[in-house]
Simulated assay, not measured.
Amino acid sequence: MAFADNLKQLPAISHLAALELIDAAGNVAATIENKPGKAGSLAVYAALAAKHGGINVAAAEEGLVIFAEHTDDARANPGKHPNIDRLLDVIASGQGFTCKLIAA
């Protein structure tokens, strides 16, 4: 399925302003905001966090499937899709993130 089709299967994120990714040291490693160009990534990360309890290797692998055609583009163009690059890094390193949801 294409990313747009996969997004339709994910829970709504209208109640979220953002999601913070917290590293093992307790620092905010990244924030994904609910705004144009980022809302899709927020939906993916929020769904993965709800299912897996955070972003671990299993969540990252599932995320790459959800991102569909964008995953191939991210692999071919490192830096173009930072939220996908982050999932690839989680798989490579085994170091995941806990997630904090920020209400809208």
Results as ranks from 00 to 15, higher is better:
83 N>Q: 13
53 G>C: 03
94 G>L: 12
14 S>W: 10
26 G>Q: 10
50 A>F: 06
29 A>N: 10
51 K>N: 04
49 A>K: 11
7 L>T: 03
25 A>E: 06
67 F>P: 02
70 H>Q: 08
46 A>Q: 02
27 N>F: 15
85 D>H: 06
71 T>Y: 05
35 K>F: 10
64 L>F: 03
26 G>Y: 09
74 A>S: 06
98 T>G: 11
7 L>H: 04
36 P>T: 11
59 A>L: 00
78 P>G: 07
59 A>V: 02
54 G>K: 00
74 A>P: 02
66 I>C: 02
53 G>M: 02
26 G>C: 12
52 H>Q: 00
87 L>V: 09
43 A>D: 03
21 L>R: 11
100 K>P: 12
77 N>D: 07
36 P>F: 15
41 S>T: 10
65 V>D: 01
36 P>K: 09
68 A>R: 07
19 L>I: 15
59 A>P: 01
57 V>P: 01
95 Q>T: 14
46 A>S: 14
82 P>H: 08
78 P>Q: 07
21 L>A: 12
68 A>D: 05
92 A>V: 14
1 M>F: 12
15 H>D: 12
78 P>A: 08
62 E>D: 02
43 A>Y: 01
70 H>V: 03
50 A>N: 12
14 S>N: 14
4 A>H: 05
66 I>S: 00
80 K>F: 08
97 F>P: 08
94 G>F: 08
97 F>K: 13
86 R>W: 08
10 L>A: 11
92 A>E: 10
67 F>S: 00
100 K>H: 15
29 A>W: 12
44 V>F: 00
80 K>H: 13
91 I>C: 08
84 I>T: 05
27 N>T: 13
21 L>C: 09
73 D>V: 12
11 P>H: 09
3 F>W: 05
84 I>L: 10
71 T>N: 04
59 A>W: 00
63 G>T: 00
63 G>P: 02
99 C>N: 04
63 G>A: 01
100 K>I: 13
74 A>G: 02
43 A>W: 00
28 V>D: 08
13 I>W: 07
100 K>Q: 15
78 P>L: 14
47 A>N: 08
19 L>F: 10
99 C>K: 10
47 A>E: 06
70 H>Y: 07
53 G>I: 01
91 I>S: 04
9 Q>V: 05
80 K>D: 11
27 N>S: 12
64 L>V: 01
22 I>W: 14
2 A>N: 12
35 K>N: 11
45 Y>M: 03
17 A>I: 13
